[in-house]
Write a protein that binds this DNA or RNA. Structure first.
Length: 661
RNA sequence: GGGCUCGUGGUGUAGCGGCCUAACAUGCCAGCCUGUCACGCUGGAGACCGCCGGUUCGAAUCCGGUCGAGCCCGCCA
């Protein structure tokens, strides 16, 4: 084998920072350089004019160097320096000198020296910037920052985040090359896929009437690369989804996409985990990883304990099932040892018991749950704070949110105590594992999903609000064994929860059948609803960082799975013919993952918003304020494409027409 | 598609029915200043309060609409 593992190092690429305009950068000079004659260039960060003496702070990406212009030493340079304003681009030549004793600036890397200017040349003048380029901490309206992003990037915080992102991508590449992965680009002009997010569409000029779609991810292509025998592939891939934006979602974003052949779930997770550890240690060496190996949590357990499939493990506050204690309470007053054990899913034997509170009883009778989280030290929450939490719960589908506050003496107090009675309130206080001063927040609903979702979101929100999460810790965890499908009642079929090609756990393979016996007549009662996928998500500090699966590589199984998802054979071939045919030519077992680089970079940079780690992001309404995109196309562009612009919807067109009259 | 918040000199904020001929800080312009580093001192210019309409004797301030930005729900296999 003659596979080059490392590219040869060319001496030409060890490129010095010297250029015709400079010998050194603004971050290079130290005390040992005193006496050197240097050329240096950069932006005027700040000017301090003392009359005969002018100080210029010269800035570039690498640092800031103080330049002194003395009217006696160099009158010409002094005259030019008098005209300099902030953000002018300058080229300066002079002598490096140690600063006078006591005048060093410990804040600057170059603070021991200064450049005594012999000449100052203005390479480019500059308007007064629309915000403070030289005060990086000054709060600035984000739309201004986006409109003048090139100025925002001159500031240290944005610059540092882009450098961090560059380091992240580099570390990812290094880790993959070390493990024998091949980096391969896949097309941006692709074919539309019917499922999932809305596609961005690009009309074809050479095939009038046809369109390309931009990839939502290179999913099928990476599987084809496995069929092609590439064995280990990765890519830093740009992906596109035409959905509404959020702080953690942009219409175009970057994924680390990888796929491996001859693997099972464990093997993929093992590699990805090792890669993540390497990358984290390389990029943010000061941030401790909470637990190694990463916890691997079954999907059902994650919902049961944390109410989330991307739990933030930096703090506890796990969900507690109150039903057993409530139902048992009147008879025997407390059995906390049993109640604390959180993880096991089954609801207690219901039917005869009552909690005394109708809302709880109805939820349980309908097969639902009564669960709680304990908010530490929130017993003294004000009425309006509680109301806000109730409102939060309602917004996420709960009908309400009950609470019990624990007094200093350990007694529980609650507006619903009159229904529950003392014994049951005591059962909640002890069963939930409270301490005096805690607040128990209780959600009951006929739907376990609603209870989990509401309490999971409350947990995350309160965990951050109460400062329970260590901002420095990286708590990675795996969540795996997701259900294969969820029932789509509107369309009467099963939807892949993740990816239509995800494989089923071998022991659940026999569940991929319908109750009706006809594979093309799925129903809610199908055993398929219980099937678990070879699917795993990686979460970091409560964010979904990525997800993947081991794929189905057997044609027969793929057809069964697609049938459950409502695909006739014809439609399956129309949509996925290429990959299906490929599978007939020998597809190895394979699996992989895709991870959100933007989110990863944001978390590394302590940001809650991926725009902060993107050079040129779009606003929430999908516009680029700097370039003013999107914009109306030229009519000629339509005719080339065989398109005609029919305008906005009827109502809007009418109102526009009215406006013109 | 929906809910909430915000929009006042270049920037960040204050003002929230008459005291506003709109305040403060910073920036900008001019002058002075030989050791500053958020230099300092003196003086000056700069906003009709996002836009449109309404209520009122009177609107930056209240109401409606609209535009823009943000957060959230829906959406995001």
């Amino acid at each position: 084998m003659s596979e080059p593992s490392q590219p040869p190092v060319s001496p030409q690429t060890a490129f010095s920072s010297a250029t015709p305009y400079r010998d050194v950068t603004c971050g290079d000079l130290r005390a040992t350089d005193a006496g050197r004659s240097v050329h240096i260039a950069g932006w005027a960060h700040r000017r301090r004019d003392h009359g005969h003496l002018i100080f210029l702070d010269l800035r570039d990406r690498y640092g800031i160097t103080q330049v002194v212009v003395d009217a006696d030493e160099s009158p010409d340079a002094h005259a030019v320096a008098g005209r300099v304003r902030n953000e002018f681009v300058l080229e300066i030549s002079g002598q490096v000198a140690r600063r006078m004793a006591g005048k060093e600036n410990a804040e600057l890397e170059t603070g021991e020296i200064e450049v005594r200017a012999e000449s100052v040349q203005i390479l480019s003048e500059a308007h007064t910037p629309p915000f403070y380029v030289n005060e990086p901490d000054a709060t600035t309206d984000e739309s201004l920052r986006l409109k003048y992003r090139y100025l925002d990037i001159r500031r240290r915080p944005m610059l540092d985040r882009l450098l961090l992102r560059s380091a992240l991508v580099r570390a990812i590449r290094d880790a993959h090359h070390r493990a024998g992965f091949v980096e391969i680009e896949t097309p941006i002009l692709l074919k539309s896929t019917p499922e999932g997010a809305r596609d961005f569409i690009v009309p074809s000029r050479l095939q009038p009437g046809s369109v390309y779609a931009l990839p939502q991810s290179p999913q099928q292509l990476k599987q084809l690369l496995m069929v092609a025998g590439m064995d280990r592939y990765f890519q830093i891939a740009r992906c596109f989804r035409d959905e509404d934006l959020r702080g953690d979602r942009q219409p175009e974003f970057t994924q680390l996409d990888l796929e491996m052949s001859f693997v099972d779930e464990q093997r993929v997770m093992d590699f990805v985990e090792a890669m993540i550890v390497d990358v984290s240690r390389a990029v943010v060496p000061d941030r401790p990883i909470q637990q190694l190996p990463f916890p691997r949590i079954d999907y059902k357990e994650a919902l049961e304990r944390f109410g989330s499939d991307k739990p933030d493990l930096r703090f506890g506050m796990e969900l507690v099932d109150l039903a057993p204690g409530l139902l048992a309470a009147p008879a025997l007053l407390a059995a906390p040892a049993v109640l604390v054990a959180p993880a096991l899913p089954p609801t207690p034997a219901i039917g005869e018991g009552s909690t005394g509170f109708r809302v709880f009883d109805e939820a349980l009778a309908a097969g639902g749950r009564v669960k709680a989280i304990v908010a530490p030290s929130m017993a003294d929450a004000s009425r309006s704070q509680i109301d806000e939490l109730v409102e939060f719960a309602r917004r996420h589908g709960a009908r309400g949110l009950a609470h019990v506050s624990v007094a200093p003496d350990g007694a529980g107090h609650s507006p619903i105590a009159k229904f529950l009675g003392e014994a049951r309130v005591a059962a909640i206080v002890s069963g939930a594992g409270t301490k005096p001063g805690d607040l128990v927040l209780i959600c009951a609903d006929a739907s376990h999903e609603v209870v989990a979702d509401v309490l999971g979101r409350l947990r995350q929100e309160l965990g951050l609000r109460l400062g329970l999460a260590d901002q420095n810790v990286l708590a990675y965890c795996w969540v795996y064994h997701f259900p294969m499908y969820q029932w789509d009642a509107d369309r009467g079929r099963w939807d892949a929860t993740h990816n239509p090609f995800s494989g089923v756990l071998p022991e659940d393979e026999q569940l991929l059948v319908t109750a009706s016996g006809d594979p093309y007549k799925p129903s809610r009662q199908d055993p398929a609803g219980r099937a678990r996928a070879m699917q795993y998500d990686i979460a970091l500090n409560g964010w979904e960082l990525g997800g993947g699966s081991v794929r189905i590589n057997k044609r027969e199984l793929l057809e069964r799975s697609f049938a459950l998802q409502g695909y006739s054979l014809e439609r399956m071939h129309a949509q996925f013919g290429g990959i299906l045919e490929a599978f007939d030519f020998g597809a190895p077992p394979h699996g992989g993952i895709a991870m959100g680089i933007d989110r990863w970079a944001a978390l590394f940079a302590h940001q809650t918003n991926i725009r902060e780690v993107m050079a040129f992001p779009k606003t929430q309404s999908g516009t680029d304020l700097m370039l003013d995109a999107p914009s109306e196309p030229d009519p000629e562009q339509y005719s080339d494409l065989g398109l005609r612009f029919v305008g906005f919807d009827a109502a809007e067109s009418a109102s526009r027409a009215d406006a013109k009259e």
